[in-house]
Write a protein that binds this DNA or RNA. Structure first.
Lengths: 153, 153
DNA sequence: TACCTAACTTAGGCTTCCGAAGTAGCTCAT
DNA sequence: ATGAGCTACTTCGGAAGCCTAAGTTAGGTA
């Protein structure tokens, strides 16, 4: 039996790859003209719906508190990426919507991300990369719906 | 050609899994009695050498500035996890060393991490998990030694 | 009407980083 | 040997990104 190949533990792999991904992404965004982009913005852009999302929804999906999300939206509003519109169905609520500039930025960001995935795939092999990504996706879902493993009375 | 299964993009996978990993790890550490552990501490503990490491080394490996690493070490020193010893080879430098309590904490942390990996492996299948981890490890190395390849999209 | 809850904002604080500037020790050319 | 310049580290001030607590306004219910 071969000794298992040495590798960093999951935590280090995740942390380091996340950092490199973010660095690379924001370099690409800056290169594409989105110089004001910040990592925290992804907590909004990752979840915002095309029809507009409520602050409460965004905060829940990003697993942040309402004030934290509110500040983020403030910032993106200042940058002209999103706008707050009154929710016609509830005057307490506001719908956070992408502006035209916001949609444009989203397209840029998606292209940048696709570019990074492409680079990664080239580095470790397309199929191997895709398989790993699918495993991570499956793991994330398994953790989200956590009736844990075996013990299920 | 089947349509590729839907999945989150790498960035989201990495970010979300990292968060869950950290949450889980620190729950386990607290449960094990390491109530003062903080995520930032891993920037030291992940890289510190058994013979002691210089601040400069630690900062470089963790990709942080010297002042940031210095503060972290201050904190871990206050907690009795590490100590600063004069470096016999250079009186400007200090060797950051684990104390006995530090070693004990490291053992606890390693056990907690192993427990999490075990849980992950159970959720997606041992072999599949290990393969994904190895792919991530390969990717990280490929990014670290980045003679890249050819085309930049 | 009165009350409870929900959506959001404001205020204040903590952590974790960073850049700039300072101190002490090493090295090397003269 | 000594002054110039570099290196190792610390200190200081500040920004980013989050939090909790407490407020405001609107909706639901009796």
């Amino acid at each position: 039996m071969s000794t298992p190949p040495e590798r960093l533990h999951v935590g280090q792999l995740l942390v380091q790859l996340t950092r490199r991904f973010q660095t690379e992404l924001f370099e690409r965004l800056v290169a594409a003209g989105l110089t004001d982009a910040r990592v925290a913005h992804t907590h909004v852009t990752a979840y915002i719906s095309a029809d507009g999302s409520r602050l409460t929804e965004l905060a829940a999906q990003a697993r942040m508190t309402l004030p934290a999300m509110s500040e983020l939206v403030d910032d993106l509003q200042r940058l002209g990426i999103v706008e707050r519109r009154p929710d016609p169905r509830d005057r307490r609520a506001k719908l956070i919507c992408l502006t035209d500039a916001g949609w444009e930025a989203m397209r840029t960001a998606r292209a940048a991300i696709a570019g990074i995935e492409d680079d990664y795939a080239r580095r470790v092999g397309r199929e191997r990369f895709e398989e790993a990504a699918l495993t991570l996706d499956a793991l994330l879902r398994a953790l989200d719906a956590p009736p844990t493993d075996d013990a299920r009375s």
